[in-house]
Design a protein around this nucleic acid. Sequence first.
DNA 1: CTAACAATCCAAAACGTTTTGGATTTTTGA
DNA 2: TCAAAAATCCAAAACGTTTTGGATTGTTAG
Lengths: 336, 336
Amino acid sequence: MSTIRQLADSLGLSITTVSRALDDYTDVSALTRARVRAAAEASGYRPNAAARRLRRGLTEVVTMVLPTAHGRFDEPLYIELLAAMGPHFVKAGYDLTLLTAPPGDEEIKTYRRIVEGRRADGIIVVRARRDDARIRYLLTTDTPFVVMGRSDVVGDYSLLDGDGMKAFGVATERLLALGHRHIVHLAAPSAFTFSTLRRTGYEAAMHAAGLQPCSVESAAETDPAYAVALHILADENRPTALLCATDRMAYGVLRAARELGLRVPQDLSVMGHDNLPASGQTDPALTTMELPLADTGERLALMLLERIKTPDAKPVHDIREVRLIERGSIAPPMTL
Amino acid sequence: MSTIRQLADSLGLSITTVSRALDDYTDVSALTRARVRAAAEASGYRPNAAARRLRRGLTEVVTMVLPTAHGRFDEPLYIELLAAMGPHFVKAGYDLTLLTAPPGDEEIKTYRRIVEGRRADGIIVVRARRDDARIRYLLTTDTPFVVMGRSDVVGDYSLLDGDGMKAFGVATERLLALGHRHIVHLAAPSAFTFSTLRRTGYEAAMHAAGLQPCSVESAAETDPAYAVALHILADENRPTALLCATDRMAYGVLRAARELGLRVPQDLSVMGHDNLPASGQTDPALTTMELPLADTGERLALMLLERIKTPDAKPVHDIREVRLIERGSIAPPMTL
DNA sequence: CTAACAATCCAAAACGTTTTGGATTTTTGA
DNA sequence: TCAAAAATCCAAAACGTTTTGGATTGTTAG
């Protein structure tokens, strides 16, 4: 509740001097600075955030908008991401405000409110889409932002994403090394950028091995993947390994295999991507790939802060290595 | 970038009138109000948040601090909670700022910063602890807050929690109804309030059935629970059902059972609590209990808004029903 | 016709900072 | 010793709103 004026009065100083003492200006004597510091500490003085923001013309706020479809947001990963970003924003003196908006009109309105109302110094866009209206809008403004994931929208902006193409190449090679020859890729809808990249990685590796790639598309959820997997696995000439674009899809495959009496990994190797918390608990535990979230959050936060500090610097594209997490769901194919 | 002054000038009105027109005061004519509205809309005018907050003396911000141990926060549930609260805060004109702090000194400092710097109109405290320094501190201030979970700290504050006692009573009865007689409860450390409540519910139900309850304590994580479960299940006279305080502990039990060659649910029934995303993917899928998060988030948000609006109203204690989610991990005990 | 009242508008103060542009005192250099 | 320079301080302006306390005009009642 204390103001800088009360503090100044109690010290017999002007508010100018108190302000400058607390802000490490050189035109206040060491003695005075010490006195002010001590008094501020003792009285628990904190500058009123609204006042300083108004005067300084900045918000000390960064914003992230959760794209919540029908009020839900079933993405356990993001809480870790937020937790990892938190300390960096705190250290830099920024508050992170978290908003929610369903994709669509409402979403863009939310972004407009942030930008036009000057409610944030920077924005984090997550779950990039191929044709992303958020990115298109932000490019027309001068609000600094960073994107997690890749989009087809062209323009100068910083982004961070896992190297899905390389990861799926490596994953395919791993399966090949185990002796698999008939490997099918269960792909996510090509509307997602990540889907195309992962698929490309898989197909390139197959070609390099002189094998014919085979990608089957399905919605990126457990149930649709389950249905598609039932089909694939019921076939006479079924594959010995199924490389899934996401863990959720892999869960569907595991269920389908169980139902058809196929043993994993003896009869079928399964791999996913994301390393969801659930993937350590499936039976057998799922082999998967992971973009380490702690690092990612940290990097994303630093990228945004950098963007805010020097908006004219060249945006960076950080494509990060994805880690292969090998668990029990893959093995050499049984020789029949 | 537009200010109210520019808008006023462009209309040939005073800023007073513009401000009051936009705020539905009665002392501005309908015609003027319409003109102002239209011009504001057209120019995309948004009041500067910092200025209005300074003048009004409120922040239009509510805060939640994630208790992150060693920089991580492995609690997938909270993202859903946040997603559920979001729309209600947006509707009421509040921004939600999300901070992180490791439990301990740093945590209390963070709360002081919020309170003393007047950085939020209200606070959400999650993961209440039995002796909770955050609650003790907040009670000494006049900052409105609501607590998720229960604590031993006494005082007038609003809280929301699942009725763990009742839920574990019901769960125990369900196992009894299936025919189990030798049911062991794997309890979380008694430092957590929820642990004591769940244990009480279990023990009461056992007593009511004329059976001797048996609770074994373990850290509320997978690995410790695994170790304890190995012990319990290796015993000659092992239980036919293990009721776990949390899903994570149940995962440990499932692993231990698998390793000992015990089939679930034929040889051992297992139950957990939380309904983590992973619990639908275990084999067999875990029977568990859930505090519906969408409802909870909504309720929590409304409780806080209420608390902000009328701080003198009597605080409410909302103990919510927990839903039993029956999956494949429980069955009648095999008659040996 | 006038006093009272209603309707509509506005100038200026206030919110609590930071920053500008000196003012005053002390020290230094020649 | 005196002018210049350095050190230290401060009054006042500014940030963009909202709100207070009228001022002005038009309308109504007697």
